[in-house]
Write a protein that binds this DNA or RNA. Structure first.
Lengths: 139, 139
DNA sequence: CTTAGTGCAAATAATTTGCAGGAGG
DNA sequence: CCTCCTGCAAATTATTTGCACTAAG
């Protein structure tokens, strides 16, 4: 059984005709083990512990491959700069804590439904969407 | 009466203790007359017609002043790069046409309400939020 | 007058790309 | 072995900043 998520993902890549290299495995491991939402530089830092030679350029190249393969999700935030997460969980949106920078996930079927209705009314079909609530902890 | 929106905005700036220069007036005029959502470079191009000496650096500096003063809204999109709009209309969100790049505005009180509820449940207070639907014209 | 605002050019920050060598399948 | 992948450094893109000068109030 492919119980290990990283293993399942490498398999998905191989099936997609993408080579699974040492550096890609390192990055996948770091991604699956990340509880937070790291940016490219942070992923690079962490993955280097597993593969010292890994370059930042490859991190970027790999992230875009993984995104294309549907294995990771890139979330570009307000300040420019993007954060990444594995695309295993069902779709969700994000709350960004303005003070700590921490990201909380949430999901609302109702909102998704409303979005679809609104787009349809205007003659559009949603390909994907983004929603971020920039918040502060309630006192 | 301050019927002219550009005039009302310059007044708002003066009240805020911000100097209203020739280049700022040019930019404000271009902004208020823009039916679309131009980026900084495009605003520069258009405003140059009114003030030939206006530099791109000043466009950026002015845009961030105007944003701080609550006169314009900056909307950073997925590809990096931001678009701008005057902050006169009530809050709304955006539909981005993936094919043409054109932006359509919409507003849903229901969604806003749901967002507030969700944030509150998680112990947050929304400071501001962003929602973009990346769409394709329905066939 | 006083100091915020400006143009210019150089500096950042995040990401991308050309090239020559290296390793997956 | 034949490409796809990689590291490195240089290139891009969007934006910011230091400096000496100009102009708003």
């Amino acid at each position: 059984m492919t119980s290990d998520p990283a293993r399942r993902m490498t398999q998905a890549l191989r099936d997609g005709g993408v080579r699974v290299t040492r550096q890609r495995e390192a990055l996948l491991k770091v991604l699956t083990e990340a509880a937070d939402h790291p940016d490219a530089a942070e992923l690079h830092r962490r993955a280097r512990a597993l593969d010292d030679s890994l370059s930042l350029a490859t991190v970027y190249r790999t992230l875009s491959v993984l995104e294309r393969e549907g294995v990771v999700l890139r979330l570009p935030l307000e300040n420019g700069g993007a954060r990444y997460e594995v695309a295993d969980a069902p779709h969700h949106d994000h709350i960004v804590d303005l003070d700590s920078g921490q990201i909380t996930e949430f999901r609302s079927e109702k909102i998704e439904q409303l979005q679809r209705e609104i787009a349809a009314e205007l003659g559009f079909e949603i390909v994907h969407h983004r929603m971020e609530l920039y918040c502060r902890k309630k006192t």
